[in-house]
Computed example of a mutant assay.
Amino acid sequence: MHSKNYLHLLNGKRILIVEDEYFLADETRRQLIALKAEVVGPVAHVDDALELISSRKIDGAILDVHLGDELVFPVAERLDELDIPFVFATGYDPNVVPEKFSGFTLCEKPTELGKIARALFANGGLDEPQ
């Protein structure tokens, strides 16, 4: 199945966006709203993301790996503890992601929402047959 067929999975979901590039964050926010998702954030710092995770209901998250001089991995660890699915969205080499997160999807920027929807909410994520 083509990944665009998964876009409906975002309908009604609360998606946290952690992204430090304003235009990318805003574009992703607008696309998610058009798909009837509820956007949490976007935020550009680890502390802000952790605050939202502790204070808001979140169904899934899109995480930029590099946030200025910070790396997003403390956010990924917290989401993992709470069993909240997430994907890394990065233009960098995927080898920067620690091995313990190797099972999580890496999407190149700009974010491809069909692929993200499938990774977050389709049973089996990206391992299911196409």
Rank of each mutant, 00 (worst) to 15 (best):
16 L>C: 06
46 V>W: 02
39 V>F: 02
35 L>P: 11
45 H>I: 00
13 K>S: 06
52 L>D: 01
46 V>R: 04
40 V>I: 15
6 Y>K: 10
57 K>G: 00
59 D>K: 03
16 L>D: 02
63 L>K: 11
45 H>S: 05
34 A>M: 12
32 L>V: 09
15 I>F: 07
21 E>M: 04
49 A>Q: 03
50 L>H: 06
10 L>E: 09
59 D>I: 05
23 F>R: 12
32 L>Q: 09
4 K>R: 14
50 L>P: 01
26 D>R: 12
65 V>M: 08
12 G>E: 08
11 N>H: 11
34 A>R: 13
30 R>M: 14
4 K>I: 12
39 V>R: 12
9 L>F: 09
50 L>W: 01
31 Q>V: 04
7 L>C: 04
42 P>C: 10
27 E>M: 14
29 R>V: 03
20 D>L: 05
3 S>E: 14
46 V>G: 02
2 H>Y: 05
3 S>K: 11
11 N>D: 13
54 S>P: 00
20 D>C: 07
52 L>P: 05
59 D>S: 10
61 A>R: 06
17 I>D: 02
68 G>K: 15
55 S>W: 00
36 K>M: 11
48 D>R: 04
49 A>F: 03
34 A>P: 01
28 T>H: 08
51 E>W: 00
38 E>S: 13
45 H>F: 07
53 I>L: 04
6 Y>C: 09
40 V>W: 08
62 I>A: 10
26 D>M: 15
28 T>L: 15
68 G>I: 13
19 E>I: 07
43 V>C: 09
5 N>L: 14
44 A>R: 13
40 V>G: 01
45 H>N: 01
